[in-house]
Design a protein around this nucleic acid. Sequence first.
RNA 1: GCACCCGUAGCUCAGUUGGAUAGAGCGUCGGACUACGAAUCCGAAGGUCGCAGGUUCAAGUCCUGCCGGGUGCACCA
Length: 653
Amino acid sequence: MLESLRKRLAAHLREWIRERFDLALGEIPIEVPPQVEYGDLAFPVAFQLARKLRERTGPRPNPRALAEAIAASLPPTEEIARVEVAGAGYINVFLDRARLLLGLRQPEPPPEPSGEKIIVEHTSINPNKAAHIGHLRNAVLGDALVRLLRHSGARVEVHNYIDNTGVQVADVIVGFKYLEKKGRAEIEAIPGKFDHYCWDLYARVTAWYDEDPTALALRRQTLSEIEEGGNPTAELAEYVSMRVLNAQLDTVERLGIYYDVLPRESEILHLKFWDRAFELLKSAGLVTYETEGKNRGCWVMRLPSEGENSAPEEDGKVLVRSDGTVVYTAKDIAYHLWKLGRLDVDFSYRPFRRYSNGHTTWITTTEPTEEAHPEFGHGSAYLSVIGSEQTYLQKFVKEAVRALVPDPRVERSAHIAYEKVTLTPRACLELGIELSPEELERQQISMSGRRGLGVKADDLIAKLEEKALLEVRARHPELSDAEARHLAHQIAVGALRYFLLKYTRTTAIAFDFAEALSFEGETGPYIQYAVVRARSIFRKLQEAEIERRPLGPEHVAEINRLLNARDDLWTLLYFAARFEEFVRQACEGYEPAILAKYAFQLAQRFNNFYHGYHILSEGDPLKREVYLAITEAVCERLVRALDLLGIEVPERM
RNA sequence: GCACCCGUAGCUCAGUUGGAUAGAGCGUCGGACUACGAAUCCGAAGGUCGCAGGUUCAAGUCCUGCCGGGUGCACCA
């Protein structure tokens, strides 16, 4: 309801200024004043207007006088108590506190379906090793975006791109075949977490290459066997990569993350996606065949020069190597063209995993299958959650797509870049990883799958669950083992997801065990706990059979007497009411951290209220009802915010 | 060398398209459990917003230069 009020006020001001001054302002900025004394909404529009008028007519009008005139133009409505002009020309709007409280109890209207289908690609871990916390940041970020977009009314299709033909997979195969000399049957018999096994093997293979560079020949040979297909090596690679993929999906399932479809690079290759994209690029004149220079024999794409003075010597990006094979960026261009339905080829699909919640994840295949599948692709836009180190390459991909898909869908598509999770030297020591003297000097150390250097996602989740279980058992010894574990799991996921989402995307997370394992302070469990306590008030209320006195419009004057005297109650209520505003900001900026911070602050303010007011023992029925209404409004928004972050609220904590 | 990201309290980070007195968490010190759950709350100490200019009624926020850190600039992905 606040969002619609803001829209109405902004529209009114724009219209009024347009009529009065014949001036078209773009966005009307709306602020929330820093102090409750300044009101609830502030319009600094008079400053902006004064400036525009000076530009046009010369003398600068007094912003204060303009503000007075603008303020007087606002039509009176039930929701607004009064309007004041303050300072040099702020227009401050004071809301009717009781009306807002009553209005908050109405459920928000569901967003209108936009009819758009947004394709979100995230996770995309090479299927040759276990996921580490850096991969988890990607998955958790992507999943939160999916939830936010769905909340705002979009249809979302979730992709997890599987690079099953790259060198990383080849490296593990080299490890099995030549380092361990294992046959297919032995590999299949490896027990336990297969992705963890491959994690170690991958690191050993990398170390082997360093020791004996001649072993690199095995990698080349293995890679070409995999790309060729139809031989035992390719079959082994298929087995290994799919088994690792399943293990990775087990890991993210622990966090409640699912995908609609798993497009595989092998199908991009075998189903001629690239051939088709290549034709389009060639006929659009975007790629050129180099006949001399260092890229001789390659097909190269150059970014369209942005100005006439850009360097003519740009190297461009090789898309097709001189041996005719295709680089990753080229395959990505083909994939993205397919996402927008621009390639007139399609994958075949088969179900890959069916989950107990009824969800089915499909995977691409070369052979058509009988089973009917949903329509994939043909998106209205795509979002790719990919590390910011790939920004340069993603620019090439977007430019290529932009040149071949001449419609606004490309402009709404984006590379969602995020910084990596790095390890502090202390975290490395705790992991038992040996560092070189110069690494010890550094503030942060990058995780590296090649070196086997990193915190495995499963291990961190296990540690969190273990710690949460101890806390739950200490507080609720009466619970069964299954119940206690369920609660511990929800708390662990809350801690982990919040930890990964509280940082903005541009911040490199310096991973620290103590911080990641904390359940106190700015953490997921802190917010969960606030909800659990709020809910227990309502449980106690029912048990005590206290008679309720429903609030209605007839109480407006009374409620206002209370709320106008108590700014602390009002600021809590008002902050809860601003939920949709923060959701919108998080959605528009693809920045779940905005919502995470909001949820924490709301929980913090609620805890403050909780300590200052004893609700159940309040003797005045009207006051008690107001306290309960505030608690309900806060609780409901906390639950929804957590849900958008992928965090559940435990029954007890 | 060029491009992108970052530099805010001892540490880790927020700071909404430029707005009114720069905020949290952790850590430190001191307090609050015979009332709705202490995974909580209250209080204190802690800041030349990397440096220097510029634009503006208004700059942590925008522009330029410099310093410091990260990432990328492959016929890897």
